[in-house]
Computed example of a mutant assay.
Amino acid sequence: MSSTLHPQSERSRAAASGLTLFAAVMMLVVGFMNLFRGIMAIVHDKVFVTTPDYVFKFSLAGWGWVHLLLGIAALMVGVGLFRVSLWARVLGVAVAALLLLASFLSIPYYPLWSIVVIALCAFVIWGLCVVQPEDSPDS
């Protein structure tokens, strides 16, 4: 069937699957980072900054559980993204957006790591949204 497709259509499909693969790998990286961040926060590791007057004040263990659960979700979605399916892409954007929001809200606790995760999540969202594969050879 691929011999009947137009060359432009084949390139679009390759680009879509390539960006989805990129997003899947980045989602796995972000998932592992958040998994470790969650574990560190739950056991009250000394790498976190104390912030006495923060508007979104939450216990360190509470933030740890949030990041741990989001990290597990990111790992599951990252594995699902290797199938290049629409449901995995939609769920990937949603989980990456939640990870981005959680990292933004926890910037005062671990600034550098939060900014790195925000950037990676933004790349994941971009990679999943920018290219849509063509379904028919006529398009």
Rank of each mutant, 00 (worst) to 15 (best):
P108T: 02
D53Q: 10
D53K: 05
L81H: 01
T51Y: 03
L128C: 08
R13C: 01
V77D: 03
A96P: 09
G80S: 12
T4H: 12
S85D: 15
V55I: 11
M76F: 08
D53R: 04
T51S: 13
H67A: 07
S114D: 07
R11G: 13
A122D: 07
G64T: 11
C121D: 14
M26N: 10
A97Y: 03
V116W: 05
P52I: 01
S12W: 09
L100G: 09
Q132S: 05
V84Y: 15
R89D: 03
T20A: 12
V49E: 01
W113S: 11
V55E: 06
V124L: 13
L21V: 00
S106W: 00
I39M: 06
W65M: 09
S9G: 07
L105R: 06
S114R: 06
V84P: 02
Y110F: 05
V90H: 13
L70N: 10
G71Y: 12
I39W: 02
I118Y: 07
A94D: 07
M76Q: 10
A122I: 05
Y54H: 13
P111M: 01
G80F: 04
K46D: 12
A97H: 03
F56K: 06
M40Q: 07
V117S: 14
L100E: 08
R83E: 06
L28V: 10
L75S: 12
V117Y: 01
V30N: 05
I125H: 06
V95Y: 06
L60R: 14
L35D: 00
V47E: 11
W65V: 13
S136Y: 10
V95P: 15
F32D: 00
V43T: 05
P7Y: 10
G64R: 03
R13P: 01
A74S: 15
M1D: 08
V130D: 11
I115F: 06
L105A: 07
L75P: 10
A119M: 11
A16V: 02
L69D: 03
S136N: 12
W113E: 11
V49I: 06
L69M: 13
S103F: 07
A73Y: 04
C129A: 14
M1A: 13
T4D: 11
E10C: 08
I118W: 08
L35W: 04
V131T: 09
D53A: 06
M1R: 12
G38F: 01
V130N: 14
V25M: 07
D45H: 14
F82K: 07
I115R: 05
V93E: 10
I72P: 06
T51D: 13
M27H: 02
A24C: 03
D45R: 09
H6D: 15
T50V: 08
N34E: 03
A24I: 00
C129W: 10
V79S: 09
A122N: 05
I39L: 12
V55L: 07
L86G: 02
V116R: 02
K46P: 02
S136Q: 09
W87F: 10
V90W: 15
V25R: 03
L70R: 12
P52L: 02
L19K: 07
A23C: 08
R83S: 14
V124C: 15
L112H: 08
P111C: 02
M40E: 04
I125S: 04
C121P: 10
